[in-house]
Simulated scan of single mutants.
Amino acid sequence: MFTENPNQLIRRRQFSFEMLQAIELLSLPNKGGHTLKEIADICGVNEKTLRRWRAEENFQKEIQKRVLQSVNEMLADVMDATVARAVDGSGKHAELVLKSLGILKDQHNIVATQVAEDYRSNEAIEREIEELKRELAKFDE
């Protein structure tokens, strides 16, 4: 007999009406001004059920999908406003427009430095210091 693991069952499950209501409310900025308890009440479930739903991967993905849909719906208006500010002379807005179009890119140059590790013992280093002191003393004479 074939059995599915719980993640596969969750993935296949259709969202109930109550779950869809919760997804809509949870995808709003600041949860539409509601607490989790209020959202649970609106959806007709208890808060523990809502918290369990929120732990499910597909439920989280659906919330993210709805958030992205909302952002995409507003993106054209945001770009129009940004372009208008750039045309009015705002350098920051012009930079943002050019970067969003891929015309202007930030350059980050990272210079790697290597530090040589010294594996000598303290005694070996002290001997070398004493030897250097003797050689310096010869020059002073």
Rank of each mutant, 00 (worst) to 15 (best):
T3Q: 02
P6H: 09
N7G: 08
L9H: 10
I10R: 15
R13K: 14
R13A: 14
Q14I: 10
Q14M: 10
F15Q: 00
E18A: 05
E18W: 00
E18G: 00
M19R: 06
L20A: 04
Q21F: 05
S27M: 03
L28K: 09
P29I: 00
P29L: 03
P29R: 01
N30A: 11
K31S: 10
L36G: 04
L36A: 03
I39V: 14
E47C: 13
K48V: 15
K48D: 08
T49Y: 08
R51G: 06
A55R: 04
E56A: 13
E57Y: 06
N58Y: 01
Q60H: 07
E62I: 03
E62N: 05
K65A: 07
K65M: 10
V67S: 06
L68Q: 12
S70G: 15
S70Y: 03
V71S: 05
N72P: 00
D77W: 05
V78W: 14
A81M: 09
A84F: 06
A86Q: 05
D88H: 00
D88G: 03
S90Y: 08
G91C: 07
A94F: 07
V97H: 02
S100A: 10
S100G: 11
G102C: 00
I103F: 11
D106Q: 12
D106G: 00
D106N: 12
D106L: 01
H108Q: 09
H108E: 14
H108Y: 12
I110R: 11
I110V: 11
V111H: 12
T113A: 05
T113S: 05
Q114Y: 11
V115T: 15
D118Y: 01
N122E: 15
I125C: 05
R127Q: 06
E128K: 07
E128G: 05
I129T: 01
I129A: 09
E130Y: 11
E131R: 12
R134T: 13
F139W: 03
